[in-house]
Design a protein around this nucleic acid. Structure first.
Length: 303
DNA sequence: TAGACGTGGTT
DNA sequence: TAACCAAGTCT
């Protein structure tokens, strides 16, 4: 039996169980509705980058109501976009999404492209989001490898508790080898795999007892061995970091849009760290400084 | 390629 | 409580 046949047979058994489970347990997320076009899917994917579904849901609904097309968002001010982004986090994503909308309007005729090269050329769109738009918005065959899919495949096929810290070539090859060959089948495979990772095959407490793949799972067959990458994972510091300072300053600016330097001093007292955070926010285009003739800051505002 | 980049719920 | 984790991208 050649490798292609083996992979095909394995995929077939997994696919049948996975799709049956998905049909019964899929969530009715707003961006999965029939009324959602490619722009809506793209917006949802950018918002969902490193951000839980529950936080994205209300923001996405309001966003699509306000800016239903790329041209609508492109015409909005950065300040309005940042305020609407609210507390989704990583506010640079909001700015990039607006730049993405501008690029779609100016270079793609206002239509979200369906080919990988054009998608990857857009601001804020990387390998995952490009594949997700092709698969979920256009029903095309694409290797969708987000954190959920990586984890499910690492367990079911690789027998490991968790995937490596960063995406490997071997993982991409394995995912490609198991992807159904047809457009519709591959699109369903992708969304079902992702949903299983989100609802059952979770990072912390996987619900193996109700998993549709349990009889086929290599990790379960191996006795659930621990994560071999554990020693390489380092936790991200937060308290007292410049990152936390940036977040505190942006929270004030979202609320007031334009504030005196003293107001920001109240929001983040340590002067040197505040200066550093503000400088980086200005460099990122998230904040603008209004200065007098001597260059002293009179106020800070959203762009 | 490793590190930077928000925010808040869960364990 | 501190740490972990969430549909990644960019530099």
């Amino acid at each position: 039996m050649d490798p292609t046949t083996r992979a095909g047979a394995s995929t077939s058994a997994l696919h049948a169980r996975l799709t049956a489970w998905y049909a019964a347990h899929r969530r009715d997320l707003p961006w999965r509705g029939d009324g959602t076009d490619a722009w809506g899917v793209l917006v949802s994917e950018v918002m969902l980058q490193q951000t839980p579904v529950s936080r994205v849901d209300p923001v996405w609904r309001a966003w699509m109501e306000r800016w239903p097309t790329p041209s609508d968002l492109a015409a909005a001010s950065p300040a309005d976009v940042l305020v609407a982004w609210d507390r989704l986090g990583y506010p640079r994503r909001a700015l990039r999404l607006r730049e993405c909308a501008t690029a779609i309007r100016d270079t793609c005729g206002g239509i979200v492209p369906d080919d990988e090269t054009a998608l990857l050329a857009l601001p804020g769109i990387g390998p995952y989001t490009a594949a997700a738009v092709r698969a979920f918005a256009y029903g095309r065959r694409a290797v969708v490898l987000d954190t959920n899919v990586r984890r499910v495949l690492a367990r079911a096929l690789g027998g490991e508790a968790l995937p490596a810290p960063s995406l490997t070539r071997a993982e991409q090859d394995r995912a490609a080898a198991h992807l159904p060959l047809d457009d519709a089948g591959s699109a369903l495979w992708n969304v079902a795999l992702m949903e299983l990772g989100a609802l059952v095959c979770t990072a912390r407490s996987p619900r193996c007892d109700v998993c549709p793949l349990r009889e086929l799972c290599a990790w379960r067959a191996a006795g659930h061995p621990p994560d071999v990458h554990a020693h390489r994972r380092r936790t991200q510091a937060w308290h007292g970091t410049d990152r936390q300072a940036r977040g505190a300053l942006m929270a004030v600016l979202r609320e007031r849009r334009d504030v005196a330097p003293e107001t920001l001093a109240d929001a983040w007292p340590p002067p040197e760290q505040r200066r550093r955070a503000l400088a980086s926010l200005v460099a990122d285009g998230l904040v603008v400084a209004v200065t007098d003739d001597d260059g002293a800051a009179l106020s800070y505002a959203l762009p």
